[in-house]
Design a protein around this nucleic acid. Sequence first.
DNA 1: AATTATAAGTTGTATAGTTGTATAGTAAAG
DNA 2: CTTTACTATACAACTATACAACTTATAATT
Lengths: 232, 232
Amino acid sequence: MSIYYQIYESLKKDLSNNLYKPGEKLPSENVLSKRFGVNRHTIRRSLQLLKNEGILFSKRGSGIIVHDNRFKYKIGKRVRFSQNILNENYIPETTILRSEIRKASKIEAKNLEINSKHEILLIETIGKINNVPSIKTKRIISNKRFPDFFDIFQKQLSITKTLKILGVNDFFRKNTLVTAEQADSIQANLLHCKINSPLLKTTYINQDLNLIPIEYSQTWFVGERIQLALEN
Amino acid sequence: MSIYYQIYESLKKDLSNNLYKPGEKLPSENVLSKRFGVNRHTIRRSLQLLKNEGILFSKRGSGIIVHDNRFKYKIGKRVRFSQNILNENYIPETTILRSEIRKASKIEAKNLEINSKHEILLIETIGKINNVPSIKTKRIISNKRFPDFFDIFQKQLSITKTLKILGVNDFFRKNTLVTAEQADSIQANLLHCKINSPLLKTTYINQDLNLIPIEYSQTWFVGERIQLALEN
DNA sequence: AATTATAAGTTGTATAGTTGTATAGTAAAG
DNA sequence: CTTTACTATACAACTATACAACTTATAATT
């Protein structure tokens, strides 16, 4: 087999091993040609194959960059899971992990601006993009304000649709905190990632037009597949 | 007697008269075919005989290079590349293929007697003898212990000199393992040998006078040109 | 401190030359 | 008739070199 093809395979292996990470630059063509002991044109031919596959792209004068094919999840004033995915021409799907009705914790009550004696509804869901589970969400919703929420949500599998049925035509973010965590074995299993893989965690409140909190929630994103695009 | 064989003998005579010296290129096949007044394929047939004898080596796109066969590489308590070559009146040269700083693997950490969380410096080099690449080395060095190693090595291109600058005046082998491998196409290209040519591979640790490991390394020798002379 | 030159480094492109390989054909020898 | 030696041609793969177009970092200047 030709040399350029072997180098192509070697580089592809490095890329899949995350030696060169999405968004990062590859060593220059000159450096690579020295490393493999071939002429620059031979390297260029190997790189061309990877460019054709959409794995790499190059910018004259700048370098060769590993294409970042992580899903760009937009976080702005209005965050809508399904719409976010559909806008990028991917297929969204939501599955319910569990639900629970219990008394609010102090933090939950405070963030939902409800009495801590009130009950809340907890829903945990997995969000799939093109059938790949990549997003986990834990929602806390006032059960007093929305007693039928879960029944409707179970059929609709959409927060937006559920709220519309419940008479809330629009809602938006009060705030969003972004932190990082490591996946434990349970999360890794749920989210199809490795143990200790980095997860992006957002903690946020969605409120209605009257500025009353609707949900206090947390969402975990698999860092290897999703990047958060913050909008103003 | 056939023409190609006469040309073969003529070229062989030229080679033994040092008309073409090891490390140098022969005239191209086109030039030779015109000189001898034959078709290029006839010349190729003559050259093939010399390639089979290990005297010549050709590289597509580059030319035909003169090799000399058996270099005796001494492996004892102290192994010094450049000194080894100079002692046999050859010219040594070292070129860097690549370097990398990353976390130690388990094996590397164990052999260097460092914590596996520590970073290591990886350096890959090609060793040339009379301009013929024949030795490939992959070194693993503690980046914590020698943070400036690569900067110095890049200028010195000598382990001995680099270590001296870093305050290590002497070092010697803890052990050496010798195994055999086959050259893949990338290694073959780098080391000017044929695909599947046997390579001698040594795996070893160099330690300082306090018996602390300095480098955990592997060296590949082209078996057709280099023989290892083990000393006690 | 901000702006402008300068230099060095990167990818893109073009041209020419080298060896490797495949196919077809001719002539001579067995 | 088959094999061997040799020629002829063409193309693929790879090297070597040079320069253009462009980016980035650094130094110089204001």
